[in-house]
């Protein structure tokens, strides 16, 4: 149990992922589906950025930094990349939802469906 207290940010990111999976499975509204994906991305980003934390560490920037250890810098760079990627994906997905609404008058994943079988 003390593990949970130790690793709380990691567990929180796993729970965020689980909640996001719940949303993408059970919510038929396409906008909500996209929100679920955004949430999943936040979970993964939280996980990666939490990996690099060192207790009492400073941000890894040498400009006027107080003495002490520095947190790992690679996870921060990875998170930065991943955030931009997710912005890009979300923009494209929202565009497609706008078009779906234009074409079918609905953003329910079941009612706006044309392809099946």
């Amino acid at each position: 149990m003390e593990n949970i207290a130790d690793n709380f940010p990691f567990v929180a990111s796993a729970l965020l992922l689980a909640v996001a999976f719940y949303i993408v499975i059970f919510r038929k509204n396409l906008i909500k589906l996209i929100m679920g994906i955004a949430m999943m991305a936040s979970g993964v980003n939280l996980f990666i950025v939490a990996l690099g934390y060192r207790t009492g560490g400073n941000a890894p920037i040498y400009t006027d930094v107080p003495p002490g250890p520095m947190v790992l810098s690679v996870p921060q760079a990875l998170t930065l990349t991943s955030i931009v990627i997710n912005v890009a994906v979300l923009a494209l997905m929202l565009t497609m939802v706008i078009h779906t609404y234009r074409n079918t008058g609905d953003i329910d994943s079941e009612k706006s469906r044309k392809l099946k079988g």
Binding site: Y62, T63, D64, V65, P66, P67
Partner: peptide
């Protein structure tokens, strides 16, 4: 190249 370690930038 800045001096190694903390500096004013």
């Amino acid at each position: 190249i800045p001096p190694t370690g903390p500096n004013s930038g």
